[in-house]
Every structure is written in C-alpha cells, then in structure tokens.
Amino acid sequence: MTSLIHVPMALSTQGSTLLTVAQSIIDASAPMGIESKAVLSDNRGVSLRSAELHFVDYTRTCPREWFNRRELAVDVAAGFAGLRRPYYGHAYDPAVEAVQGVGGDVVLLYAGHYVAATLPAWSAVRKDSTIVLYCHNPLSRSYGRRELSRLLSAADVVAFCADHLRVDVEERLKGRLPAEFMTVHNGVDPLFTPAIAPTAPNEPFTVVFAGLTTPHKGTHLVLEAVELAARRAQRPIRAQIIGSHSYGHAESISTEYEASLRTYADRMTAPVEFLPFLSKPELSEHLRAASVACLPSQWAEGLPLIALESMACGLPVITSDSVGMIEAVGEAGFVVPGGNPEGMAEAIVILAESEAERTAARDRSLMRSRRFSWANVATAFASLGRDISARG
C-alpha cells in the first residue's frame, strides 16, 4: 500500500486553503487504498479526517506566526552566503523529528512559511521517501537564484498547483532545474454539483463572492460592480458575500476594511447579504442557488479552489486578469482586466438579461470543471512513491 505523509503549513488554521487541499487529497486517497498520514500543530485546534495524525509543537522553533523583519533579514543574509537560514530554516524541525520513525512513500511539504528552506533537513532523514515540495503560491522572492537552486536540489520533485507558478520558478532558475518539476492542478470536491434547475428569469439575480474579505481579494470591487449593474439591469440584482478576514466561522466585524464593506452596502440600492465562512456542504448549496460568481482577485492566485467549485456548480464566473484566475477559468470565464467594476457590471447585466448567454456560460463552466479531480491529484502523488521505488 502506498502512503502519503502530508505536512501542511506549520501554523495553518482550520479552514485554510492548504488544510482544505490536504483533506481533499486524503478523502480521494482512501477509496484507492492510498494510506494517509499528516503532521499538524498541536496548539492551533486543527485536525484532518481519515489520516494517521502526528501532532508537534511548532512554537519551539517558530514562536510567532511570522518572523519579524530583522529575523528575515538575517535569514536572507545566511541564505545568500550559502548557509542554512537560522530562523525559517529550522521552523519545521519538530515535524522533521516527528516523522523520522514514521513509514511513508511520499512526503508532501505544502509550501508556506518558507518550507523550502528546510528541504535539506527533510532529505537527510527521509532517504527512502520521495520528497515533494508542493507549491500553491509563488515561492518567496527572498530566495536568490543560487540559494533557490541549492534548496530545491534537496527535493525529488517540485509540484505546482498551476502552470504559471512552475513557469515563474523555471524562469528564476533560468531553465536549470535542480529537481523534477511537474504541475498537478487542484481538484474539485464531489459535493460541488450543478443545480437541477438554474435560477428562473423572474427571480433576483444573485452575484456571489466567497473567500477572504480583504482588499487583495477585491471584495469591494464586487459591491461596486453589483451596484452599477443593479442600476442598469431590468432584473433585480443582489449580492451575497461569503467569508471573513481570516479563515473560520467568526461573524464579528474585526477589520476596518470589513466595516467599510458594510458601510458601503448600507448605501447601495441593491440588497447585500453577508455570511461567514461556510462548511463545504453549506457553500455548495449557496453556490447552486446563486446566478454568477464574481471573483476579482488583485494578486497572483495559485489555482483558486472557489473558481473551480463555482464552475462545478454550473455558475458563470467573472474574474480579474489575475494569472491564477485566468488559468483556472480558461475560456469558460469572463475575464475583466484589473477586476474593473464597470467591466464586471457589464458582464453581470449581459448574463442577467440573456438566457442564451447564461446557458452558454453554464455549459462552458461545467465542461471546464470536469478537468479538475482530487482523485487525479492523489494518483499523481502516489505514483511518485512507486516510481522512486522502481528506480531503487
């Protein structure tokens, strides 16, 4: 039986993207007879189902969620000199120690908190396992080319959830790859399925946003676009904002930005509903009941799960031209440069008033979403263990 050891970001919180990805791969692995193990922080209230869990105290080596600027500067200087980074280079030491006696064919190191800086330590204690650096965001620019090449050479495979992330690192290394590079696109949970009957033409047209309610996700742009569309469309338009400034289910307003969203919503003519982060079953129900997803991210996403999940529910997806969003939606989405509210409003009105446009967009979304499967992800990683065994 092939076994995968999942090592999510050291100080992950329940509901965060990387823990969601880990759980999705674990769920897909079980029916295929792939054994799952995981290393988690013992003081963050996190857990994963259907896996053998090993809890460690990351605060021994990483007392805060992030090291400060002075500590990062020391790290960068050490890395430039060819030395192990004294802070982030040791952040995962508790996990390295914990897995020394744990059997596993493949170790999946979810890139975050500079886990790449710890690759030499992992390769030293897991000589019989395939070491995979699993990247969901751009690798830190604090790594110079020589340091990045040296660190990645300690991995057997560097896996990226999106092609644009892989290409970025290849360009930084000027094509001289120190390990095997591969793209393993994210999947879609089977819970996300289309509604039996799409929203009727006489019902309010619901524009849904789901994710972190932060400036870099462009939540304010959604509200601006909905207000513009509501003034122009013949059909009632409403907005539904699902999420919070941090992962979890808290409903309290705790940032100035979130307060500003509600202040703006109070002045809108279009109705707005705010909901906290939802469980997967709840989120899938809300997506099926919506009319269109609006996701104007303002940063270089990896391969955003919410875009894939929205398409799997048959929703047309309006996005910014964030490189990760473009890779996720492909030809199926409505891409608006910069997530400009005027452009998004135009797309909303077209979809709200044309049944033919809605049907065509729904069909494109469903067809696109079928490319993404967590079973394929689990199979791809499990095969790496078999491949390295065959080489040995």
Score class of each variant (00 low, 15 high):
Met1Tyr: 09
Pro8Asp: 04
Met9Phe: 09
Leu11Val: 14
Val21Asp: 03
Ala22Asp: 05
Ile25Glu: 00
Ala28Met: 09
Pro31Leu: 04
Met32His: 15
Gly33Phe: 03
Ser41Ile: 05
Asp42Ala: 15
Ser47Lys: 12
Arg49Lys: 14
Ala51Gln: 04
Tyr58Gly: 00
Cys62Lys: 15
Arg64Met: 12
Glu65Leu: 12
Arg70Gln: 14
Glu71Lys: 09
Glu71Phe: 00
Val74Glu: 00
Ala77Pro: 03
Gly79Ser: 02
Tyr87Met: 02
Tyr92His: 10
Ala95Val: 02
Glu97Pro: 01
Glu97Tyr: 04
Glu97Arg: 14
Gly101His: 10
Gly103Gln: 13
Gly104Lys: 10
Gly104Phe: 02
Gly104Val: 07
Asp105Glu: 04
Asp105Met: 06
Val106Arg: 01
Leu108Lys: 00
Val115His: 09
Ala116Arg: 06
Ala116Asp: 04
Ala117Ile: 05
Ala117Asp: 08
Thr118Leu: 04
Leu119Ala: 07
Ala121Phe: 07
Trp122Gly: 04
Ser123Ile: 05
Ser123Asn: 14
Ser123His: 10
Thr130Asp: 02
Tyr134Lys: 15
Asn137Tyr: 12
Leu139Asn: 00
Arg141His: 14
Tyr143Leu: 09
Arg145Asp: 04
Glu147Met: 07
Leu148Glu: 01
Ser153Gly: 15
Ala154Pro: 02
Ala154Glu: 02
Ala154Ile: 01
Asp156Val: 05
Asp156Gly: 11
Asp156Ser: 11
Cys161Trp: 06
Val167Ser: 05
Asp168Pro: 11
Leu177Asp: 01
Phe181Ile: 07
Met182Arg: 15
Met182Leu: 10
Thr183Arg: 12
Asn186Ile: 08
Gly187Glu: 00
Asp189Glu: 12
Phe205Gln: 00
Val208Cys: 07
Phe209Tyr: 09
Gly211Trp: 03
Leu212Val: 02
Thr214Glu: 05
Pro215Gln: 08
Gly218Trp: 01
Thr219Lys: 02
Leu221Thr: 06
Val222Glu: 03
Ala229Gln: 10
Arg232Cys: 08
Ala233Glu: 10
Pro236Asp: 09
Ile237Leu: 08
Gly243Lys: 00
Ser246Ile: 15
His249Thr: 15
Ala250Tyr: 13
Ser252His: 10
Ile253His: 04
Glu258Ile: 11
Leu261Ala: 01
Tyr264Gln: 13
Asp266Phe: 11
Asp266Met: 13
Met268Val: 03
Thr269Glu: 12
Ala270Cys: 10
Pro271Ile: 03
Pro271Lys: 06
Leu275Cys: 09
Pro276Arg: 12
Ser279Lys: 14
Lys280Pro: 11
Glu282Gly: 11
Glu282Tyr: 07
Leu283His: 05
Ser284Asp: 04
Glu285His: 14
Ala293Ser: 08
Ala293Thr: 03
Pro296Trp: 12
Ser297Ile: 10
Gln298Pro: 08
Glu301Tyr: 10
Leu303Val: 03
Ala307Gln: 11
Gly314Lys: 08
Leu315His: 04
Pro316Gln: 05
Pro316Phe: 06
Ser322Val: 06
Ala328Asp: 07
Gly330Ala: 01
Glu331Thr: 13
Glu331Ile: 06
Val335Asp: 01
Gly339Pro: 06
Asn340Ser: 14
Gly343His: 08
Ile348Met: 06
Ala352Ser: 11
Glu353Asp: 13
Arg358Phe: 09
Ala360Cys: 08
Arg362Asn: 00
Asp363Thr: 11
Ser365Val: 04
Met367Tyr: 10
Phe381Glu: 00
Ser389Asn: 13
Ala390Trp: 14
Ala390Asp: 13
